[in-house]
Simulated scan of single mutants.
Amino acid sequence: MCERLQQIVGRNVRTERERQGLTKVELSLMAGVSRQYLDHVEAGKANLSLRMVDKLANALDTPAFELLRELS
């Protein structure tokens, strides 16, 4: 996944997590990933697979395309 897209997904995951009032620990448990991995995702440093984007989207109860979408 290109760096720009990693940053977009990371920002969108963090924004949605915060909007829902979830901590990183809560979301990591819901998504079945470590909190450290979620730190990397939100920092835009994780090279996510589409499967992982789907896992995070499901945990956030949001469509996966919303995590991939660049917000203005």
Rank of each mutant, 00 (worst) to 15 (best):
M1I: 14
M1K: 12
E3N: 11
E3F: 07
E3K: 08
L5R: 12
L5A: 12
L5T: 12
Q6L: 12
Q6P: 03
Q7F: 11
Q7N: 13
Q7Y: 10
I8S: 05
I8W: 04
I8K: 01
G10I: 04
G10T: 03
G10A: 03
R11K: 15
R11M: 15
N12W: 06
N12T: 00
V13M: 06
V13Q: 07
R14A: 08
T15D: 14
T15P: 01
T15S: 13
E16A: 02
E16D: 03
R17G: 07
E18H: 06
E18F: 06
E18D: 08
Q20N: 09
Q20Y: 06
Q20C: 10
Q20E: 11
G21A: 04
T23E: 15
T23R: 11
K24H: 01
V25Y: 00
V25S: 10
V25F: 04
E26P: 00
E26D: 10
L27P: 02
S28V: 01
L29H: 14
L29K: 14
M30D: 10
M30G: 00
M30V: 08
M30N: 11
A31Y: 02
G32V: 05
G32L: 10
G32C: 07
V33L: 06
V33N: 05
V33A: 00
S34Q: 03
R35A: 06
R35I: 06
R35H: 05
R35G: 01
Q36F: 09
Y37F: 15
Y37L: 12
Y37I: 00
L38M: 08
L38D: 01
L38I: 04
D39V: 07
D39R: 08
E42A: 08
A43R: 09
A43L: 14
A43N: 13
A43I: 07
A43T: 08
G44V: 06
K45I: 05
K45D: 10
K45F: 09
L48H: 08
L48Q: 02
L48I: 01
S49Y: 08
L50T: 11
L50S: 13
R51V: 14
M52A: 03
M52P: 00
V53W: 06
V53L: 13
D54T: 04
D54K: 05
L56G: 08
A57L: 06
N58R: 11
N58I: 11
N58K: 13
A59S: 10
L60E: 07
L60T: 01
D61Y: 04
D61P: 03
D61A: 12
T62I: 15
T62P: 06
T62D: 03
P63I: 00
P63W: 03
A64C: 09
A64W: 08
A64D: 08
A64F: 09
F65W: 12
E66Q: 09
E66Y: 09
E66K: 12
E66M: 12
L67T: 00
L67N: 03
L68F: 03
R69T: 14
E70Y: 11
E70R: 06
L71G: 12
L71V: 14
L71D: 15
S72I: 11
